[in-house]
Amino acid sequence: MKDIAALKLYTRVARLGSFSAAGRESGMSQPQVSRMIAELEQELGARLLSRTTRAVVPTEAGKAFLLRIEAILAALDEAGQSVREGGEFHGMLRLSMPTSFGIHVAIPRLADFAARHSRLQIHLELDDRRQDLVREAVDVAIRIGALPDSASATARQIALVSRVIVASPAYLAANGAPARPEDLAGHRIIRGAAAANPLAWTFERDGESIAARVQPQFTTNDNEGAIVAAIAGLGITSTGEWECRRALEDGSLVRLLTDWTMADVPVHAYFPMGRNTRAAARALIDHLRDGIAADGRG
């Protein structure tokens, strides 16, 4: 088990590019991490890492070793899971997803999964930005919107999100409501991170399609901020239906252009480690997908 711990530690140093950062993750000091890696290199008879004053990077031998070791560690995790009593997962599972999805969809559905796997630690990064998932050791990330072709082989669609146009009653009382998509050009627009296109919102009705050009007067990198801005009366925003459902129900937001539809937005689970993805990550995504489908959301 000591050898496995050293191998896991090496993968984190290599991915993070730092002995100190890997040490903080594992509760070890920088000298302890450095010593364990040095012992591993001595045992292998190869230099795995190149140490400079600015960074720690894998050597060519270290890169090849990293790819093989990550696959082996994933296989060991699978093997342990296959014989573990009750099929309970353990260890650390790292997730990453946009703030709104985490708050409104994922977190409310995690209680049952966490209860069944009480030895599993779940670390959730809520961030609308797309960080370096491999470097941060993220097991699975939620991505909203179209994925690049290079990601399709390691992604799985779990839901479709209905988009809506909303504004506050106060804003509408002062500025009126748009009757057609083209009328949006005369309104103040709020753009959040979930906006699929900053320049145009596309609507359809009875075979007619209109791409309404919009010029945001208020932008934010957090979609929750865009919803709060709309509630505060700063303007009109486009967002996922699930994200503003409560505000629509309590009347703090009003849905606009209800006789027009916008294209649904796909929600994918993205596995940065591909076939080396841990079983716990796949099981959690199954749990979320089934929960979303049962509630009729998306």
Rank of each mutant, 00 (worst) to 15 (best):
P58S: 06
M36H: 10
D139W: 00
G298S: 15
A5Y: 10
S150E: 15
R51P: 02
V83F: 14
L66R: 13
P98A: 04
A137L: 13
Q131P: 04
L199H: 15
R245Q: 15
G240L: 12
V83T: 09
A229C: 09
H104A: 11
M92C: 12
A211C: 04
P198F: 06
I292E: 04
D295F: 01
T11E: 08
Q217Y: 03
E125R: 09
G102W: 00
D222N: 14
L7Q: 15
L288E: 00
Q30C: 02
T99H: 14
I69Q: 10
R130H: 12
Q157R: 12
R213W: 14
R12Q: 13
R129S: 11
L95E: 01
G233C: 05
A155I: 00
I144P: 00
Y10P: 01
S18K: 09
A185C: 06
A21S: 13
R35A: 03
A74R: 05
A22F: 04
R24F: 07
S252Q: 02
L66K: 11
G225E: 12
C244P: 07
A74G: 08
A177F: 02
A281T: 05
T237R: 07
I227L: 12
E39T: 13
V214L: 11
G86D: 11
A279Y: 03
N197H: 09
I210H: 06
G80Y: 03
D3A: 10
I231M: 10
V254A: 10
Q217L: 14
E208L: 07
I189Q: 07
D286A: 08
F65H: 08
A6V: 11
D286G: 06
D222S: 11
A269Q: 03
T53E: 15
I37F: 01
T59A: 11
S162N: 15
A151T: 04
M36R: 15
V166K: 07
A263G: 06
T261S: 13
Q30M: 04
M36F: 09
Q32R: 14
L147W: 05
M97W: 05
S168N: 07
S162I: 09
G80P: 01
V56M: 07
V161K: 14
G274K: 07
I190Y: 01
A230K: 05
A173R: 08
F89G: 00
I231E: 08
S168D: 03
A61Q: 14
D206K: 10
I4N: 06
V214E: 02
S238L: 15
G87V: 02
F19N: 01
G207Q: 04
D250V: 08
R24D: 10
A293D: 08
R156F: 00
P108G: 00
V254R: 14
P216Y: 01
P198Q: 06
T239V: 11
V57H: 15
P266K: 12
E249H: 10
R94S: 06
S238I: 15
T239Q: 06
E204G: 08
L234W: 08
R68T: 12
H123G: 12
A232T: 03
A6C: 09
V138T: 12
V164H: 05
H187Y: 10
G17P: 02
R47S: 13
D112G: 15
R255G: 05
P98E: 03
Q42C: 07
T258H: 03
R188G: 01
D250P: 04
